Simulated scan of single mutants.
Amino acid sequence: MLLARFSTADDPTPRIGRIDGDSVQELDAAGDGLTLSALLHAENPAAFVQSLGAGPVHSLGAVRPLSPLDVQEVWAAGVTYKRSQVARMEESEAAADHYDRVYSADRPELFFKSTAARVVAHGGPIRVRADSDWTVPEPELTLMISPAGKIVGYTVGNDVSSRDIEGENPLYLPQAKTYDGSCALGPYVLLAEEPLKPAETTIELLIERGGAEAFRDSTDLSQMKRSLEELVGWLTREYSIPDGAALMTGTGLVPPGQFTLENGDAVSITIAGIGTLRNPVERS
């Protein structure tokens, strides 16, 4: 079951709806509207959605996509794919050994990525920092986690990263990863009614420049070294998430060499079964 958080041209109030082909049907919780927090707090989100009343139906082309968060924090995991390990070692000679060791360590790399208010929705602009000369998109399956630490859904994420800033010194990671326009999520949430099939959960990255393809590559979830449950377990080990959270699970797709995003580019990330997150690029 696919859900979308959206607003309409007539009413900017966020609402949640169920996707059905090219339309979205609003869901209503006892006439009081529905928040993502309420959904994440439900013992069985899928059953909770099924129990809700049905509201108006809208064409997807007529609604404004919103990020799939209302108050949740966004966290991210790093170096969970072999390709990401190699890329991090290439960008930072001084810290190459650190990235090599974190790939094989029991404890994963986890870092804070964004507040809900800063998350860019489908169609909104992602940004390149003015002080970065090497910025790339990082396509990532993103987990929607309940306050109890249960995976209740999945969405598409773009962990935009300034590779030159991170490569200069690993202690600059927060500046390389966390800034306005560096995190995009959406357009839909796939409720976790059954476990994902890793080999069938493909992730594709397309970067367009001047209307032409500049880079395209794909991978699948079977290439991840760590399990999704393992990452959630580490995030919630000593950290409570009373409103739930979103957790980006790392990337296995990295553009080659010194390829960098430029003003006017368009980035599309497609995850099988969830949808395509597309964002234009702006350089501040």
Rank of each mutant, 00 (worst) to 15 (best):
L3K: 02
A9I: 10
A9S: 14
P12Q: 07
P14A: 06
D22G: 01
S23W: 08
A29L: 12
G31F: 06
T35V: 07
L40T: 15
E43P: 04
P65Y: 14
S67A: 15
D70G: 03
A77N: 03
S84Q: 12
A87C: 11
D97S: 14
H98G: 01
P108T: 03
P108A: 02
L110P: 04
L110Y: 01
K113C: 03
H122C: 04
G123N: 11
G123Y: 09
G124Y: 09
P125Q: 05
I126M: 12
W134C: 01
T135G: 00
E138T: 11
L143Q: 06
Y154G: 02
G157E: 04
R163Y: 11
R163A: 11
I165Q: 11
L173E: 11
C183E: 08
A184T: 01
L185H: 10
Y188Q: 06
Y188A: 10
Y188H: 15
P195M: 05
P198R: 08
T201C: 13
I203C: 11
I203W: 03
I207G: 02
I207M: 04
R209Q: 04
R216K: 14
R216G: 08
T219W: 08
M224K: 11
K225T: 12
E229N: 12
V232E: 00
S240F: 02
I241E: 00
L247E: 02
G250L: 05
G252M: 03
P255I: 01
P255G: 05
Q258R: 15
E262C: 14
I269K: 05
I274C: 04
L277V: 08
N279D: 07
P280K: 09
